[in-house]
Simulated scan of single mutants.
Amino acid sequence: MQRNLFILCLFLSVSAFSQKDSIRTTILKGQIVHAENKRALSAAHVLNLNAVVGTITDDKGFFELPTKANDTILVSYLGFSSIKLKVTNDLLKGNELEIALYEKPEEIKEVIIKSTQLIGVLEVDVKLVPKDRFTRIHINGLPQTYEVGKPQGKNFASPIAALFQPVDFLYSLFGKKPNQLKKLQKLKKEDDLRKMLAGNFDREVIMEYLEMDRQELTDLLTDCQYSDYFIKKASDLQMIEAVLDCYENHKALKKGKIERNKIPVKN
């Protein structure tokens, strides 16, 4: 009986060790190259979406990143289509991985040029300058910078429509999946990740963690009273900080409403 018990304990110990060994963190090594001419892409971003750790490729396109099996890696480079890669045990056997990225097709947009007849009087010319929704207009001689284009709020007059406010979805998401909130907070906190995201503008990281597409992310930031200019021009780091600030403000507002509702009414 004791012999059988000893064998069972030994088996369980070996099994537990094997499971722990199978999920241990390993350094994934690889190179990011241009898909067509195999040119090395330096300063490409490589991010482990599960562990929230990232790195940037060196001048020869090489990178090293801590990973484990079943992690998802996001690789992005300015002007190229990003790629998501599921880490398998085969990739962790020590062989260097080559990841090829394709250039994004250029979008040709119609440009309309309009002339504005200025008369040389500052007070009058200010009113004649054409307004662009997505740019800041600064006129010499005036102390402030104008941000043209205010966010257009949505009409959530009915109780049913109010349920679909993007910021309420965000509040619900972080409540049901607090790990998503923790990952965004880590992106904002870690210096290396902050530097990486400060030069990134593709929105893919934040869309991944928020489980939103680009239009839904735009609706969320509009709901949070951010301007069209900010939504279009902000870096990914600024976007993450804006979403976290919006969430904290909304949480405080909801908490205040709940506490007020709990106050007993005196007759």
Rank of each mutant, 00 (worst) to 15 (best):
L217G: 02
C224M: 10
D236I: 02
T67P: 06
I139K: 00
A43Y: 14
I83V: 15
L210F: 04
L217W: 02
G256S: 11
T55G: 03
R214P: 00
I231C: 04
A161I: 04
F164R: 11
I231F: 00
T57D: 04
D192E: 12
A43Q: 10
E204S: 10
D192G: 10
F169V: 13
E248K: 11
V52S: 04
K182R: 12
A69F: 14
L237T: 00
H45Y: 10
C224S: 15
P264V: 09
K109A: 07
A44G: 01
M239L: 15
D245N: 07
G30P: 00
L47W: 01
I206C: 00
E96N: 12
D90Y: 03
D132A: 08
K93G: 04
Q225L: 10
S158F: 05
V75H: 03
V53F: 06
L28T: 02
V52C: 03
V124M: 05
K20N: 14
R194Y: 09
Y171W: 06
F80E: 10
I32N: 06
L92K: 01
S227F: 01
E106P: 06
Y209H: 15
T55K: 05
L210R: 04
V33I: 15
L78V: 05
L28E: 01
Q19E: 15
S235E: 01
N48G: 04
N140A: 07
V75N: 02
P159C: 08
L5W: 13
P159Y: 13
D228N: 15
G79W: 08
L237F: 11
M207N: 12
A40L: 05
D245L: 08
L10I: 07
S82K: 12
V167H: 02
D132I: 05
I137A: 10
K176T: 15
L253E: 11
A43N: 13
L128E: 13
Q185M: 14
I263N: 10
S13G: 09
L237Q: 12
K189L: 10
Y102I: 08
G256P: 00
N261Y: 11
N261A: 14
L92P: 01
R39L: 15
F134H: 11
K177Y: 12
D59T: 08
E106L: 14
L187S: 07
G149N: 08
H138W: 05
I108N: 11
Q19Y: 15
R3L: 14
R260A: 14
N155W: 07
Q185L: 14
L220Q: 08
F230Q: 03
G149I: 06
G94A: 01
P178G: 02
G120F: 00
I206G: 02
F63Y: 13
S115Y: 11
L118A: 04
S172G: 04
M1F: 12
P66Q: 07
H250L: 05
I258N: 09
Y247G: 01
E123H: 02
K68S: 13
L193D: 04
I258M: 09
I83L: 11
T218D: 08
Q31H: 09
K195D: 14
N50M: 07
R203A: 00
F80C: 05
T25M: 12
G199F: 07
A35N: 08
F6H: 13
G94P: 06
A40E: 11
I32T: 09
I7A: 12
E123W: 00
K251N: 12
K38Q: 14
K186A: 07
T116Y: 01
K262Y: 07
E259R: 11
R194W: 06
V14C: 12
L184I: 09
N267M: 10
C9K: 14
T218R: 14
S227G: 05
